[in-house]
Amino acid sequence: MNIFRLAGDVSHLVAIIILLLKIWKTRSCAGISGKSQILFASVFVTRYLDLFTIFISLYNSSMKIIYISCSIATVYLVYFKFKATYDGNHDTFRVEFLVVPVGGLSFLVNHDFSPMEILWTFSIYLESVAILPQLFMISKTGEAETITTHYLFFLGLYRGLYLINWIWRYYFEGFFDLIAIVAGLVQTVLYCDFFYLYVTKVLKGKKLSLPA
């Protein structure tokens, strides 16, 4: 464990909590892509199946339980409890265009052709594109609530910090996982446009609206 990975996990946890609180407090999931939330929930479920087979540490197991429960709770709030506020007309990204290629790729490019490893690989590839429905929805509505932009900031930051963690681990431990690194790069690059808008607009107190 190193500071960048810990900071990444904290940033990820903050993002998940921000979103959950936003929906719960405002009793509304306006501007939130339910499709992205479903993708994130499946990312966690497919990646953390080892929760029942391998014990790494209390931290590792508890974070996995928190991520899985919060992401499923968020999907529940969006599609059931606050369904009336779900903006389905703008949440129209065709997720099958993500899931099918990602599913195929995880069978072709993986570290080990075993069920657990293929599910882990699927989860890694899926996470790298899971935010696309959310970014697509923002481009369609042309704006995002400020709290939503903070959610996206911490969510994008987390994998960026993991990239630094992987540089650290390669340098000090000689460890590297090319699948996670390439997917993490793609994932972080997808946020670049948003990061630019976040820094130049939201941090200056303006609302995030597109076109920029």
């Binding site: 996990d9 990820h12 790494i56 996995k64 993986n110 570290h111 080990d112 075993s114 882990w120 996982d177």
Partner: peptide, 10 residues
């Protein structure tokens, strides 16, 4: 190259 299934990261 890490053996497949020893993923210790979240």
């Amino acid at each position: 190259k890490p053996k497949g299934n020893n993923h210790d990261e979240l």
